[in-house]
């Protein structure tokens, strides 16, 4: 054991000091301010606010719209991540198994990842436009439907539509990361499994899955956080409509804060979101740590 009697080394601290400043002043301090705002009547334009205790939380927890938005956020997150992982996985396996054109397909398939969300919304609204959009008119021309489908303004079609857009956008990132993980699996392990007479499925379960589960696990948690907290995608595609059916929690909070100008209530919504995420992630890390310890 090396003795840890060292002088405090100030120059070492100087390296990390600016980043600590950023994290404290731009992340920790604002979150604490938000907690404080959530107990006040903070207003977007009025300068004075008063302490209102749990009033904001009580009102939000009594609002039916909050539960609808919460449910929508969870449905949106689970469906998006589930779909992205399945599709990403399939595409990664395909890419990993081909010999010619691997690089080309990889580049083509990751294009959506680089799209700014604003452009995603604009192009899909154009392609799906209910009057002259390329996709609805093509579906009619092919004789698949008689009337132009209203992908973004029909209450029943809108969710599958925005889900499709989010799968289009999010799958490449999952695919590329699973592909990187697949490439780290030593070839011998596959050969060993083959020698033992394992079927393709058995090899998949006993060699492939354990090797990539850690990368996929972390990726899933990061993307879950991203989708759950993301405001832009749904807001830009639908604005939360039609008739609030696609309103997620971030949109609900945005409308409360910037539409109704009630920043205190809006803060309370976002704090509830954060608490929920902290609980979900703690559970995830509790189990992943436990699993890690068992494996060691």
């Amino acid at each position: 054991m090396i003795k840890r009697i060292k002088k405090i080394n100030y120059t070492s601290w100087l390296f990390i000091l600016p980043a600590i400043l950023v994290i404290v002043s731009l992340l920790l301090y604002p979150v604490l301010s938000s907690v404080v705002y959530s107990f006040t009547s903070k207003h977007l334009t009025r300068p004075v606010s008063t302490f209102v205790g749990l009033q904001n939380y009580k009102k939000i927890l009594a609002d039916e719209q909050f539960y609808k938005a919460f449910f929508m956020s969870i449905k949106w997150t689970v469906a998006s991540i589930g779909g992205q992982v399945i599709l990403g996985f399939i595409l990664a396996m395909l890419l990993n198994s081909i010999k010619i054109g691997k690089k080309m397909f990889r580049v083509l398939l990751i294009v959506p990842w680089a799209f700014p969300v604003v452009v995603i919304a604009v192009i899909w609204k154009f392609l799906l436009n209910g009057v002259y959009g390329f996709i609805p008119t093509m579906l009619v021309n092919l004789g698949l439907t008689d009337t132009l489908p209203q992908f973004l303004s029909s209450g029943t079609l809108v969710f599958p539509t925005i889900l499709f857009v989010n799968l289009w956008f999010g799958t490449p990132m999952i695919m590329v990361n699973i592909l990187s993980a697949l490439q780290t699996i030593p070839e011998e392990q596959y050969e060993a499994a083959k020698m033992d007479g394992a079927s393709t499925w058995q090899t998949f379960v006993s060699v492939t899955i354990p090797h990539i589960s850690k990368v996929v696990g972390l990726l899933v948690i990061l993307r879950t956080i991203w989708v759950f907290t993301n405001f832009d995608m749904v807001y830009l595609l639908t604005g939360g409509g039609p008739a609030n059916v696609t309103m997620t929690l971030p949109i609900y909070a945005y409308k409360m804060g910037w539409g109704l100008k009630l920043l205190g209530k809006s803060s309370a919504i976002t704090i509830i979101m954060l608490i929920f995420l902290l609980i979900v992630c703690s559970i995830y890390f509790y189990y992943s740590d436990k699993k890690e310890k068992e494996n060691v």
Binding site: I23, L26, L27, Y29, P30, V31, S33, S34, Y37, K42, L44, I221, L222, I225, W226, F228, T229, N230, F231, P250, A253, Y254, G257, L263, S266, S267, T270, I271, M273, L274, L277, L278, C281
Partner: peptide, 17 residues
């Protein structure tokens, strides 16, 4: 990862203030 959990919409409120 914890800071990644802070929703942008949460941070947007104190930022605007």
């Amino acid at each position: 990862i914890t800071t990644y959990m802070f929703p942008p919409i949460l941070l947007a409120i104190p930022y605007s203030v």
